[in-house]
């Protein structure tokens, strides 16, 4: 008679085998990808590219690293995000520190 524990151990062994096979798959494919990644790097160098072509619907999501602070708010600073891909991305970190404040406020002492 088959015991439940035998089925359980067989299932676990099968799942572990599948996970190990996929680990080996990952290691092999990432090693084989070397020339393809080198080719992509060469394309970036030759064409002086700055971004991945992930979202083509808006300029600030197509070239996230080149975007400025105003582009996502085409109509007004309070406008809602217009393009779906804009909600997938957080603004690049460097945007917050680059634009120097050009406005000064002097308190009027009464």
């Amino acid at each position: 008679m088959h015991r439940h524990s035998t089925h359980f151990f067989s299932c676990m062994a099968a799942l572990m085998l599948a996970a190990s096979t996929l680990c080996v798959h990952g290691l092999l494919v990432s090693q084989w990808a070397g020339p393809s990644l080198a080719q992509k790097s060469a394309l970036v160098r030759t064409l002086r590219l700055t971004d991945l072509c992930l979202f083509t619907e808006a300029s600030y999501t197509r070239h996230s690293s080149m975007a400025d602070l105003s582009t996502p708010f085409q109509d007004s600073p309070c406008a809602f995000e217009h393009f779906p891909s804009g909600s997938l991305l957080a603004p690049p970190r460097h945007l917050s520190g680059v634009h120097p404040s050009r406005m000064t406020v002097t308190k009027n002492d009464r």
């Binding site: 909600s87 997938l88 991305l89 957080a90 690049p92 460097h94």
Partner: peptide, 20 residues
């Protein structure tokens, strides 16, 4: 825009704190 900022962009936009 310096290269480190370009590289950090993709680290930040898909970090666990971002968007979706």
């Amino acid at each position: 825009i310096i290269r480190n900022e370009i590289l950090r962009t993709y680290d930040a936009i898909f970090s666990w704190r971002s968007g979706i």
